[in-house]
Design a protein around this nucleic acid. Structure first.
Length: 492
RNA sequence: GGCGCGGUACCCAAGUGGUAAGGGAGAGGUCUGCAAAACCUUUAUGCGCCGGUUCGAUCCCGGCCCGCGCCUCCA
């Protein structure tokens, strides 16, 4: 099973296989740690997670590198406003980022590279660029990339910049540049700003150079895949290509994957429009981390995803269906043996599931056979003909589904607990939904005790008491289900 | 203005040149002490509009309308 993935560079679907035959080397642009991540950021990380999980499922080893941009204009600005050095400003947001990734069950890349720890490599690269005639220094000590030296510029984003060489838009701070489109490799230190003393002068790196330097450091001069949000295609990725290939004269990344934007209510998220959500915002509203994951993952990466609360509710309900079924199959008692039709159905579901993902990571299509299999199985269980081998076959399919989607196994308690602790710490208790607090008000043990009491009441045919307990629990978001295999309860 | 993407049922969303997956929601039914869960039935003669190609188009071509994104920091 080989993944066919749309390649922005070639403009077509290309097979994604490790060029060295060993491990797939991929680089994905990570966060700039100046604030908490928002759900748009996480859609991209989640889709890259789907990619790497699917690759692993098909038996491909992955070597995935992600950068953390811990020095840039916004960080410098915010740190200055907070009156601390950037090294004291960013750790909070780095920690928050990983906590959020954990909440969403995004796997860690094999390598996480911080910009501030790779300044040397960036300086070396700039020196090489200068030697190759692709970089020049301006009077203030900054270094720029000379676009004119790289005729292929624009090949990724399919832009023809030839007509706009020296447009009217020239930044007053950058009047010394040879061409308006030349971009900064190294920014000369300004008084009071964070800076490094290096062989090319005192200053700090431009944004694009870090990715070129770190990608080549960990993956080599040429590697398999480079991924990121669609907005990074131009100019960020285009600039990475220019910087890297001007030095190596080899293809930087063979394959480029761009995740399209998440919109909120049909509009791009922005703080000014008030449609801006962080993961924490949603957790405190009472949504489960798994529901957020499923909602952000279920629309294929090459389509815009319109985020709505209805969509989150739908994902919540879909997960309920998956988990209820999983529990039913896991906890049920089934006789020895198996049914050929069910085992075949499981196999077909798995084939269709894998084929959908192999087709440009079509997550929406991949869900369908799983739900089909659930219905088929439920019917068989209702008919009392579901057997032990059927269970084995079906659970194997669900395991492969969860190897990528990772929403059936319930890990929702911890992210919510942490979000609540965070809200308390930050004095944001006012943002916590009352329903969430109600739901958290009972411990598992207390619920078990009430459920046991209800079971006793039912045996005594004291239905009034039994229903009272059920209703009381329901008010706190705890739902009870009676079944042949005992009583199940779950938090809404 | 340039580049790109999309418009499929109440909502989300796949998909194919031969007659519309899946999820959610709604309605009716079965089961149940009652519920829940589950199952069954049901909800697009129709896939933005208009032309064209074709035996046949939602899917191909052309035009139009609408929405969105990128072109500047941005996932």
């Amino acid at each position: 099973m080989t993944l066919r993935l749309f390649n922005t560079l070639s403009g077509q679907m290309d097979e994604l296989v490790p060029a060295d035959g060993k491990a797939l080397r991929m680089y994905a642009c990570g966060p700039t740690v100046y604030d908490y991540g928002h759900i748009g950021n996480f859609r991209t990380f989640l889709q890259v997670d789907v990619l790497r999980r699917f690759l692993k499922l098909t038996g491909i080893k992955v070597r995935h590198v992600m950068n953390i941009t811990d020095v840039d204009d916004k960080i410098i600005r915010n740190a200055a406003a907070a009156g601390v050095p950037i090294g004291e400003y960013t750790p909070k947001y780095v920690d928050a980022f990983f906590e959020d990734l954990d909440a969403l069950r995004v796997e860690r890349p094999e390598e996480i590279a911080r910009a501030t720890e790779h300044i040397d490599r960036m300086v070396e690269l700039i020196q090489k660029l200068a030697a190759a005639g692709a970089a020049y220094q301006t009077e203030d000590g900054s270094w720029y990339f000379r676009l004119a030296s790289f005729p292929e510029y624009g090949k990724l984003s399919k832009k023809d910049l030839s007509g706009m060489e020296n447009g009217a838009r020239v930044d007053v701070d950058e009047y010394e540049k040879d061409s308006a489109r030349d971009f900064a490799l190294w920014k000369a230190a300004k008084p009071g700003e964070t800076a490094w003393d290096t062989a090319i002068g005192r200053g700090r790196p431009g944004w694009h150079i870090e990715c070129s330097a770190m990608a080549m450091e960990y993956l080599g001069e040429s590697f398999d895949l480079h991924a990121g949000g669609e907005d990074l295609m131009f100019p960020h990725h285009e600039n990475e290509i220019a910087q890297s290939e001007s030095v190596t004269h080899k293809p930087f990344a063979h394959h480029w994957m761009h995740v399209r934007f998440l919109l909120v209510d049909g509009r791009k998220m922005s703080k000014s429009e008030g449609n801006f959500f962080t993961l924490r915002d949603l957790l405190l509203k009472g949504y489960k981390a798994s529901a957020i994951r499923l909602a952000l993952v279920s629309v294929p990466y090459r389509h815009q995803l319109n985020f709505t609360f209805d969509g989150l509710t739908e994902a919540t309900n879909a997960i309920e269906r998956l988990r209820t079924f999983h529990q039913r199959v896991t906890k049920g008692h089934f006789a020895e043996g198996g049914n050929l039709d069910l085992i075949l159905a499981a196999r077909e579901a798995d084939t269709a599931y894998m084929a959908a993902l192999a087709n440009d990571l079509n997550t929406a299509e991949a869900r369908a056979p799983i739900f089909d299999l659930i219905r088929t199985s439920n019917t068989a269980i209702d008919q009392g003909r579901f057997l032990a081998d059927d269970r084995t076959a079906v659970l194997a399919v669900l395991a492969r589904f969860d190897a990528v989607f990772d929403v059936i196994a319930d890990h929702d308690a911890e992210p919510t607990r942490r979000a609540l602790a965070w809200a308390e710490q930050e004095g944001k208790q006012g943002d916590v939904a009352p329903e969430l607090l109600a739901r958290q008000s009972l411990t598992d043990e207390a619920i078990d005790a009430l459920v046991a009491e209800r079971t006793v009441a039912k045996k005594q045919r004291n239905f009034a008491r039994a229903d009272q307990i059920r209703n009381d629990l329901a008010e706190k978001g705890i739902l009870i289900e009676d079944s042949k295999d005992g009583v199940r309860w779950k938090r809404k």
